[in-house]
């Protein structure tokens, strides 16, 4: 680092402190980790890119894996669809070491994809991407009426909700009765 970058406040020119190039510390090679989703497709991601995910960053911070160990032990995210994990990995790579822009227009417009991405990003604790996703979700219903929103997001009406609740109670009651009868049969 030069003396200027060090922020010397004196008006007099500061003595250069830059070490000769030959003596500079060698760059530490970037470490990589491996992740896979439900489809078992393994993605190689740099530790720098994974810093976006608080969950993964917390997992790898004290691992000290060698390249071979990392390759042999990919992080399994069985609850995340392969293409969704691909999107997440791509986003992390794209924004590695960069300040995140105020908008991200490259998010999926399709409802189910976006909701899957929201769930994955929430699970992986990627705060910035989650903010973009939530904005995108909000945009989906811009200018829409209650009826249209209900249709787009498949929100059940109160009546449907009540009916479903009644049905669930009835089912639970039947199951409980069945279990009691079975237990009584076993006792005999």
């Amino acid at each position: 680092m030069s003396s200027t970058e060090q922020g010397t406040s004196s008006a007099a020119p500061a003595e250069p402190t830059t070490a000769p190039e030959s003596a500079a510390a060698p760059e530490v090679p970037e470490s990589f980790y491996y992740v896979h989703g439900k489809d078992k497709v393994v993605h190689k991601v740099s530790a720098g890119a994974l810093q976006h995910s608080a969950l993964i960053h917390g997992m790898i911070s004290n691992l000290g894996y060698t390249e071979e160990q990392a390759k042999a032990n990919p992080f399994p995210f069985e609850n995340i669809d392969g293409d969704i994990l691909q999107m997440v990995v791509d986003w992390c790579n794209q924004h590695k070491g960069k300040p995140t822009p105020p908008e991200d227009t490259n998010l999926p417009k399709q409802k189910e994809k976006l909701f899957d991405l929201v769930l994955a990003v929430n699970y992986l604790e990627i705060k910035e991407l989650l903010t973009y996703c939530c904005k995108q979700v909000a945009m989906m219903v811009k200018g829409k009426s209650p009826e249209e929103i209900r249709e787009i997001w498949m929100i059940p009406t109160d009546a449907e909700d009540e009916a479903a609740e009644k049905e669930a109670k009835k089912r639970a009651g039947k199951e409980a009765a069945g279990e009691t009868a079975a237990a009584a049969g076993d006792a005999k």
Partner: peptide, 8 residues
């Protein structure tokens, strides 16, 4: 995919 608002 069947993820919806109610799953969030």
């Amino acid at each position: 995919y069947e993820t919806n608002w109610s799953d969030i």
